[in-house]
Design a protein around this nucleic acid. Structure first.
Lengths: 228, 228
DNA sequence: TGTACATCAGTGAACGCGCGTTCACTGATGTAC
DNA sequence: TGTACATCAGTGAACGCGCGTTCACTGATGTAC
């Protein structure tokens, strides 16, 4: 980068036009954007989080990127196409966040707890994207969307399988998965929809995950041994 | 109604215009609708469930009811006003469904199970309304919306308090409430968003509620007594 | 029971807006020779 | 290294649309006397 800049400077005295181009690369508007697809997705997500799904329009995105209204159609079939790409990437990142949160954890139970934290963290950081991922369905079929969703769920199932193999579960992994996923999924919505305030809880992903994990693991019912 | 109709018929021979009015009451368009507010809410909900929130417009509702575009503004301040009314009534009905489902049940544990069924049933019957209730926030403050939401949550807390007083809980009612509400709330979303298919579950409110309740009550972890 | 009048719930035309999408085009880029 | 050309990623004007909201109005309803 730096070297190419200085080499351009060296040509200054032979061609003033090139000088202008190299000194003010921002002001000079290129006919080709170059990374329009990536930029669209990036700014679309920001826009989605800012104004919700109804505030997301292809025209507005184009405007923000200094590009004509037709340009996005070079990269997405239509608006649904962009939304589907957004949701697909969302699932991929959700999966990544769950996996990253597990890093260094030993044992199925701890990994499950950490996965929950990752899940809740993702929802709290990207609430509108989270809602899009789960509450929206494209008119046309988008296989990679379903695949990425399944891949995210697979993280949870895998961790529960480890628990099961270690003899930690009192039931089938899928059965436990129903509760675990429901709980973490529901808590995510409560977190982003201000529903936790009725529980007198502050909206903190880690704390919610910890408390859910504890309750879920031991159960809310008093066991016979505990009865006095 | 019937008497007034026949009395109109009696006037037929003196005034043909009145005959037309009374024989074809449907065709004759009254200047005043009479129950516009109620009709708007009813058809708005149908429209919401049919096409989602983006398919809901005041103009379309007016058109469907054979009324001018300005008419709805006699009954709602703006579109947000109608949505808020829709959501408020949704919470009231959610509360009612949970209470009705409990009817005849004896004991806190059974009442909790039944409440969950009511909750999941509501979500599965009115998915878009359910999403609106939890995922949407009016620009302006609408106190009755929050009140109706709190009232719905109160049903759950009350049942858990009964459980606690009966010595059935291993923890604080609010702590148990966090798990119970999260689980039933999350499962509701999974139910309406087709998320259960990855768990190999058919989307049946009763079955989901039962399985969640069982897992939640006893916990997914193997207790020390169970270890072999 | 009849009449005058205030109030209320409608009308319908109009405003301005932003949207999704298409299309003939143009300028930049990459490739084959 | 230079040239011809296909391909690609943009332009910008245009289409048609439906929306939320306002406003001066009108016809029905309810009330006081």
């Amino acid at each position: 980068m730096y070297t190419s800049f200085t080499s351009n400077v060296n040509t200054v005295y032979t061609d003033p036009a090139i000088k202008l181009q190299s000194i003010m690369p921002v002001a000079r508007k290129a006919y080709h954007h170059g990374e329009l697809r990536e930029s669209l997705l990036k700014i679309a997500e920001a826009q989605l989080e800012k104004d919700g799904p109804s505030g997301l329009s292809l025209r507005k995105l184009g405007r923000k990127l200094g590009v004509s209204p037709g340009a996005p159609y070079r990269h997405f079939e239509d608006k649904d196409g962009l939304l589907a790409a957004l949701a697909t990437r969302g699932f991929q990142r959700l999966r990544t966040m769950m996996l990253d949160a597990q890093e260094g954890a030993v044992g199925g139970k701890e990994r499950l707890r950490r996965s929950g934290i990752g899940y809740l963290r993702f929802a709290s950081q990207h609430p509108e994207l989270f809602r899009l991922m789960f509450g929206w369905m494209p008119a046309r079929d988008v296989p990679e969307l379903y695949e990425s969703g399944d891949a995210a769920f697979a993280v949870l199932v895998e961790v529960l399988t480890v628990c099961h193999e270690d003899g930690l579960l009192s039931q089938d992994p899928l059965e436990a998965g129903l509760l675990a996923w429901s709980a973490v999924h529901g808590a995510s919505f409560l977190l982003i929809d201000d529903g936790l305030k009725v529980c007198d809880m502050k909206p903190d992903a880690e704390e919610v995950a910890d408390r859910l994990h504890a309750s879920m693991w031991s159960g809310i019912g008093r066991s016979r041994a505990q009865e006095s």
